[in-house]
């Protein structure tokens, strides 16, 4: 059982890092394509930039050529998770479709198709996007680790609780888009602004914006309101949570026997302070599975269960 929990955590980290690398790679590829169009030669790139870049150019070309004409294949990796093209397939946050529709625009088919993927994932597994793919969540988890370290040192840290307002924030932003005739999510949605900042860094070489957003998210997590941006404010998380209210793949207490009354290990390790041992963790739980690792009796596990979740609110 424990081996399975560890494997899931390893797989989750792999997915998170891959999503982050995708954002960076999609942006770096812009330079690769410019060199491809301008020079089309690893040797030339080596002379212009230096040998390391020339080798990176050749490596990328060889990898892409497994799948077809390198330049064409490369054009299939673009964007940020809010609206990406991954190996040519569209991937769209449902909220971007909502924001466009609220302005009286008909979203193109590719965006609608792209939104089906995250919606389908949510129908099956709830907020798996949040725990397995979201780039901002990686920053928050880093912040959580730093926070834990500081607490060991005995530092008093803020612990602001925020009421769960994600849907209302989303509605507010959609209305704002409708009223002002401009998108607004990219200014507020953490994972979108973070990945845009990172992409801009790779495109232009100036790290300022990306680092600033990274820093703000980290500081909020460490010093102000741990877990609250994800749990209470992020509109994407809130929408996926509603769509996934009956998702069969979920984190549950598989062993029905009562927990010892003194134990709250799972609650202490949960980034949102939920208490899966008491089965009050839905609907906020995003099945990250960190609690499965600490339960000494292996009472918690990912698994299939049909019917609505038992929710604490």
């Amino acid at each position: 059982m424990r081996a399975r929990h560890l494997a899931i955590q390893a797989f989750r980290r792999l997915c998170q890092v891959s999503a982050l690398l995708f954002v960076l790679y999609a942006a770096i590829s812009a330079h690769w394509r410019n060199f491809k169009v301008g020079h089309n030669s690893a040797r030339l790139v080596g002379l212009l930039k230096n040998e390391a870049w020339g080798e990176a150019y050749a490596l990328n070309e060889r990898a892409l050529s497994w799948f077809g004409e390198p330049l064409e294949v490369s054009d299939g990796f673009l964007g940020v998770p809010w609206g990406a093209s991954i190996a040519g397939l569209p991937f769209t946050d449902p909220l971007s479709v909502a924001a466009l529709a609220s302005q009286g625009q008909l979203p193109p088919t590719s965006m609608l198709v792209g939104a089906l993927i995250p919606l389908g994932l949510a129908l099956v597994g709830g907020k798996l996007y949040c725990s397995f793919l979201c780039p901002a969540r990686l920053v928050f988890e880093l912040g959580g680790a730093v926070r834990m370290g500081l607490q060991r040192l005995g530092l008093p840290l803020g612990e602001l609780g925020i009421p769960r307002l994600g849907l209302w924030v989303g509605l507010g932003l959609v209305l704002f888009s409708a009223g002002m005739g401009m998108g607004a999510f990219h200014l507020v949605l953490p994972y979108l602004s973070l990945s845009q900042g990172l992409a801009a860094w790779m495109l232009t070489g100036s790290a300022g914006v990306g680092l600033a957003i990274f820093g703000v998210l980290l500081l909020v997590e460490v010093f102000v309101a741990p877990g609250q941006i994800c749990r209470s404010l992020c509109p994407t998380g809130a929408v996926l949570e509603q769509v996934g209210r009956a998702a069969p793949f979920r984190l549950r207490k598989v062993d029905p026997s009562a927990c010892p009354s003194s134990c709250n290990l799972c609650q202490r390790v949960c980034p949102y302070g939920l208490f899966p041992g008491q089965e009050t963790h839905h609907p906020s739980c995003d099945s990250c599975g960190r609690c499965t690792l600490v339960c000494p009796d292996n009472k918690l596990a990912h698994g299939l269960e049909w019917g609505a979740k038992r929710c604490s609110d």
Binding site: A26, A27, R33, N34, S177, Q196, A200, L203
Partner: peptide, 15 residues
């Protein structure tokens, strides 16, 4: 400005 969803794909693909 109303249509663009700020995905940045155009900038990434620009030859």
């Amino acid at each position: 400005l109303a249509r663009c969803i700020r995905c940045g794909r155009c900038a990434e693909v620009c030859t």
